[in-house]
Design a protein around this nucleic acid. Structure first.
Lengths: 337, 337
DNA sequence: GTCGCGCTTGCAAGCGCGTGCAAAGCGAAC
DNA sequence: GTTCGCTTTGCACGCGCTTGCAAGCGCGAC
């Protein structure tokens, strides 16, 4: 318990020889203060090291300026990239990011949202997991905005930002066929989130339409290790696939490493690989991975814009949903058709 | 401006038929409430969806529960790993993490600290950059704890957590010599932070003592691309180094990729490489990098412990400084001696 | 029956701030 | 000099909460 030593508006007022209201108004954009008063207040504030107490301000204004970011696996390249973009844009919008880490345990997201409520966050952005419907309702009733990124929930109210996962799956299938691949495969994790499943379904559908079957394997998380295991499973099959779409770049990295170092395969000559996310490592020359770029910046922009505009309650539900396009980044892990 | 719809203690009190104080006490650990009252309050709170307003609580208690994390380059593997560990441990300690992104611009860290002050953060943890002395003082005067990680500042007051960078440099020099390396080099960035320079100096000192000279190059940031450039510069020298210590793993990854794919060198046969940080990618089979592990967990533990114990003002200044050991992780990028 | 003790409970003050309201100040217009 | 209109200023209240204080209550001991 720190002794209360933060300097308050009262002290500034006394030093500047004005009323406390004058101090308050000086730090409230748009309030009516004469140039002279403002100057004296600012001088006193500077000298004393005064900074407006946003806790108290939030109490009055009923608007804390806090936005809660709810996310698991922060240390993952894609997640941390998105996080970075979000925090930067939030800062530029005058908000401050509060950060809650979730694990995969039940109710973890719910607890995170309760934390957001306790701090009266203006909004919460959910990058992982799905909250319980009741708590979502509580948030919305409390006037808290909600953004779901790649979550694909059907509750009305939150802003939902999604990608064209299904179509991307289709696009890459075509690319594999053009490259002359005969045996396609999809390497997925067991997570089974809507985005991952969308890619899978789109890939299978397009391949089928093109007259090719797709082998699907699902294992573990969306990380590097799972990619290695998937490679072991797939590359030992009687009919070895020669075109593999991995649900994420990390899976692809693990897959490629195993394919090359354990199976001695050459990419893209003997095996074509594609990923999804366009994490930094995808561009490293060890991988040189053809992949889909998550429009991280656009996602963040959309999310922050929604918070800023204060999105009307009465606008049509369609307005609460945004679909962005994942851009295909062509590198060297698929043969040129 | 959300209409005030958060439910307050008052409403809970009315519904439960008790006074507002009773509600407050129910949610204050250690306060005196009868089992019966507590039960009725909890029921009412549950029904109404009440959550204590931590903004108001912070105002009274003069303790917000907020800890501010100040960091640049969040999307970098090492940073995000540390961040992850910190947020998890903070959460377990009942704190909540507030997140401020800094760029490399002047005063960026100072602005971040001001943000921390505005929200009356109980503490700030600085992972990047260095604050101005005046603002550090202001923080301390205001009763805010400060933690500097790998920052090596000499101001008294903050807790300083550092590694044995110098000694690590020495250890790896020995390893190179044992592996039979004849021409050593140190690949550094231009950042020139104390930790990077410590590794450099320790490496040079040990190598010199062992009778070897060290070529030093510094370029760019601590990232992959800089590693590539450094490889280009170093591997085209007349006397090509055969043992290279890279200041960070990312540099090492870039260096290795260039060495293999551009110069056709085989690692560790023709070239030994070591890094620092032990980021996840270091363990990938494409790199299989011998490196030093940052004791991320221990760093976080130390930082959080310091916040919890409320560190006495009057304890000796030495207690404000912690030195941790980086563990050498032996993989395959250095020949066995 | 009375007293005293310990646990509960309500009252009220106050944390630092924003803001409506009315009084004050000031200059221009007549 | 008076009036009008606009800007600036201070007062006082309230945001939702914690907490010291004193009153209330139940109960066993005498």
């Amino acid at each position: 318990m720190p002794s209360k030593l933060f300097v308050s508006a009262q002290e500034v007022a006394e030093r500047a020889g004005v009323s406390r209201s004058a101090v308050s108004r000086t730090f409230t954009p748009g309030a009516s203060v004469s140039a002279d008063t403002r100057r004296r207040v600012l001088e006193a504030a500077e000298a004393l090291g005064y900074h407006v107490n946003h806790l108290a301000r939030g109490l009055m204004r009923n608007e804390s300026g806090i936005v809660c970011l709810i996310v698991s696996d922060v240390a993952t390249p894609y997640r941390s990239a998105l996080l970075r973009e979000l925090t930067i844009q939030l800062q530029n919008a005058g908000k401050v990011a509060m950060f809650v880490n979730t694990d995969r345990s039940d109710g973890s997201v719910d607890r995170a949202l309760q934390q957001a409520i306790r701090y009266r966050a203006d909004a919460s952005i959910i990058l992982s997991g799905l909250p319980d419907k009741s708590i979502t309702q509580l948030c919305l009733r409390s006037g808290q905005r909600l953004v779901l990124i790649n979550r694909d929930d059907d509750q009305p109210g939150p802003l939902k930002i999604n990608l064209d996962d299904y179509e991307s799956g289709g696009r890459i299938a075509t690319a594999f066929v053009r490259a002359g691949c005969k045996t396609l495969a999809f390497a997925n994790s067991e997570a089974g989130t809507p985005s991952l499943m969308g890619r899978e379904r789109g890939f299978i559908a397009a391949a089928t339409k093109l007259g090719l079957e797709v082998v699907v394997e699902r294992y573990g998380s969306t990380g590097y290790e799972a990619g290695r295991v998937l490679a072991q499973r797939m590359l030992t099959r009687a009919e070895r696939p020669d075109g593999v779409f991995c649900a994420t770049d990390l899976l692809a990295c693990g897959f490629m490493d195993a394919a090359r170092h354990q199976f001695g395969l050459s990419i893209p000559d003997q095996l074509c690989v594609a990923g999804f996310d366009d994490i930094e490592q995808a561009s490293w020359s060890s991988f040189n991975l053809t992949t889909f770029a998550q429009p991280v910046m656009a996602i963040a922009t959309q999310a922050v814009k929604w918070l800023a505009t204060g999105g009307n309650e009465d606008e049509p539900e369609e307005a609460h949903s945004v679909r962005l396009k994942a851009e295909l980044i062509w590198r060297g892990s698929i043969r040129k058709g």
